[in-house]
Design a protein around this nucleic acid. Sequence first.
RNA 1: GGGUCGGUGGCAGAGUGGACAAUUGCACGUGGCUGUAAACCACGCGGCCUUGCGCCUACGGGGGUUCGAAUCCCUCCCGGCCCA
Length: 311
Amino acid sequence: MTRLKTKIESQKKLIAIVGPTSSGKSDLGVFLAKQFQGEVISADSRQVYRGLDIGAGKITKKEQKGVPHHLLDIASPKQTFSVARYQKLANKAIQTIQQRGNTPFLVGGSPFYVYTVCDGLILPEVKPNAVLRARLEKYSAQELHEMLKELDPVRAHSLQDSSGQDKNKRRLTRALEIVLETGKPVPPFCSSLPLFSALFIGIDMLRETLLNRVHSRLIKRVRGGMVAEVKKLHKEGLSWKRMEELGLEYRWMSRFLRNKISKEQMLLKLEQDTMRFVKRQLGWFTKDKRVHWVSNKNEASCLVASFLLNQ
RNA sequence: GGGUCGGUGGCAGAGUGGACAAUUGCACGUGGCUGUAAACCACGCGGCCUUGCGCCUACGGGGGUUCGAAUCCCUCCCGGCCCA
């Protein structure tokens, strides 16, 4: 116990800035990083892709105000990026920043990405197997579940809902992938010892305010060439199918560009989906008791100051 | 003014005498997530409670037929189309 405590205390510090989309995380990140000699690591599952700029709400060079930003534009949108890869790169970036004597600010709204890093979740060392996935795709969820019951009854059981089923093919496929690859059951979910002690700052905002911000930001970005960006990406070879997978902006704008929906429908659906996304993000963050919710920059500054001073 | 088709839950839209508190989609709500996480998935969605295959109020309003009506008849109101 004592050893564990000492270990945590000696850990390097990390500040995580979380909150729903459009709440002003990037801005706060830059503000704090400037004030506390920090660097920003983006925790956003879409901003890692090159070319996904306006649609993904990526911070511009100018907005970065000279503060170094990590993990933006590090992958091709044609290929699927993964949390596991993110985790490795983020850990490396954090280490580099700390070695420089700077403070790392993990800024982003992809909860799974944030927690994979902050809590050091241990993910099974099994790479995605496209061939296998394509083959499993042909089976129904029920059939996949049956297969998993044969190979890994424990995991199969943990996945089933109250009706004894799991209809999430993606999740079942992944479980089978792990079992088939390793020849062993899916390992139990666990995290490593925390690699650093983290201060969680969440941006507190009324849902109504957020809705207004989402709305006006959407209009602004459409005027700023968001549709053209998608058109260009497609011209450069990004398939419509891939756009669908990327979700939100890319999904709805691609549907508009394919004449499946009108511009009005696109804007409406996109706004609705964005607000749903907001709710899901908030679900993760509000459940997390570690998050300190702030309503302005000064509150955030105070929190960071005392966190960094504190031993 | 005449004819005709139609008015169903937040919206769209099935149902056209009993098994209908009403298929389905959207919206909305709650929740899950072990290398796609902005993805993917589940559940709820008239009200009430003693949660029962329970009770109440409901398919534009009113009246009627019937053991029984969202469904049939009459009438009124509203909307689309056609003729004047």
